[in-house]
Design a protein around this nucleic acid. Sequence first.
DNA 1: AAAAAGATAGGACATTTGTCCCAGCCCATT
DNA 2: AATGGGCTGGGACAAATGTCCTATCTTTTT
Lengths: 215, 215
Amino acid sequence: MSQPINMIRTNQELLQLIEQLPGMQQHTVKPGQKLFRQDEKARHLYVIKQGIVKCYITEENTKDYILEFFGEGEVMGELELLTGSPILSTVEAVTELVVYKADSAHFLQLLETNATLNKLILKELATRVSQLAIRVSYQQLYPIEYTLLKLLSLFSYQELPLSKKDLADYLAITVRSLNRTLKQLREKNFIPGDGLDIHLSKTELDKLLKRFDDE
Amino acid sequence: MSQPINMIRTNQELLQLIEQLPGMQQHTVKPGQKLFRQDEKARHLYVIKQGIVKCYITEENTKDYILEFFGEGEVMGELELLTGSPILSTVEAVTELVVYKADSAHFLQLLETNATLNKLILKELATRVSQLAIRVSYQQLYPIEYTLLKLLSLFSYQELPLSKKDLADYLAITVRSLNRTLKQLREKNFIPGDGLDIHLSKTELDKLLKRFDDE
DNA sequence: AAAAAGATAGGACATTTGTCCCAGCCCATT
DNA sequence: AATGGGCTGGGACAAATGTCCTATCTTTTT
C-alpha cells in the first residue's frame, strides 16, 4: 500500500544532473511570490535548487486545492511543455527559494539529446501520477481524522512554515474542520480501528500535536 | 479551466504507433478479468486495442477508488516499470477487451530507441498527471451534485456498461449518495449558481438523467 | 500609536454524506 | 418452478463537514 510518501517531494538525482548542465540561470524568489499562475501560458521551466513551493489549483468558487509541496530537485513547467496546455496550477514560493531556470525550447531539446535526463523525467512523471493517485484515494476513502493523522506522521519532523489554511487546502477541508479534527485527536486517545497502516503511540501523537499548541 | 475531460481516456496516436511495431502479441480478455492486481509485481505492459478497462485502488477498509477508465490506445503497466514500485491499481476489463502485450524489457528498450514512442509516453504521463489533478480538485472542492452533473455531461453520449457502483466508486461516494443526488437533480431543476463551467439546459439534463430510468 | 489585515479558535446551526436496513427485480443455475 | 446472488431504490437515523459568525492575537501598514 503505502510507500512512505513524503509530504514534500524532492528529487536529488535530478538536481544533481541539472547542476552539472552548463549555462543554467539561477534565480531567487521571495516567499509568497509566484513562479506560475494557473491558466497562463508557461514560458519556462524551473528546477528547485533550494526551498519549498506549493502548487495549487484555484476553482471558480475560489476554493484552493494544494496539489503538491515541492522541494529540492523538483521540476515545474514540464507538464505544460509536454501537453501544450495552459498552466495547471499556480506555483508559489513558501520559503525563500533558489531555482534553476531554462526556457522551454532548450529543455525540449535536452529531453531528446540527454538520455539520462529523459529517464529521470519519465520516472518523475510516473512517480507523480502514482503519488497523487495514492494520496487522493486515501483522502477520499478515509475520514479526515485518518488522513490528518497520516499527514502529521509525515511532516512532523520537517520544520515547515505552513499555515493552517495551507494544511486545510492540502487536505481539501476547511480550517474549521481541521481545528475540530485536531481537537478530536488530542482528546480522543485515537485508536485507528479497522485496517490502518498508521501506527503511532499516544506519546508520539501528543508530540506531533504539540506543534500546533506552541507555535 | 476545464479542457473537455473525457470520462474514458484514449490515445489514438499511441495506438497507431503500437500497431506498426513488429511482433506485438495480441490477447483478448473477458469482462471482469483482471490484467493487473494491486500490490503485485508488474511483468508486462499492455496497450488497449479495443474495449474499456477500469483502474481502481482498493484501500484497507475495502473501499475502492476508481482512478481511470481507459479505452483505445491507453497504456498500462508503465508506471510500475518506470518507478519500480508494485502495481498501483487493479486493472479490470469492463467490456470484452483486445490488448497488445509487451514484456517490460522490450518496452524499456523501445523507450530508448524509439524517439516517437518516447515522446508519446512523456506526453501521456503528463496528461495523466494533469487530468487526475483537475478531476481530484474538482471532486474535492465542489459538492457531489456539481461533480455528478459534470460527469454526466461527459459520459452521456458514451454507451457504457457501468454499474452504479462503478459510477459511485469513480466519484468516491456511496451508491446511496449517488441515488440521492440523482434524485435531487431530477427534481430540483438544477441551477448551478456561483461560478460554474457547466451549462446544461433543463432539457439536456433530463435526457441525461433518463438513461438511469430506462436501463 | 493606530488601524487594517490576517491567522487562530471555536460556538451554533444547517447541510451533506454515510451506515444500516429492508424490499423488489432480474437473471442464472439448479 | 425455485433459490440465491447481484443490482437497484429508498427510509430512518447517525456522523461528518461546511457555513456563518464572533472574538482574540499577531503582524503589517499607514
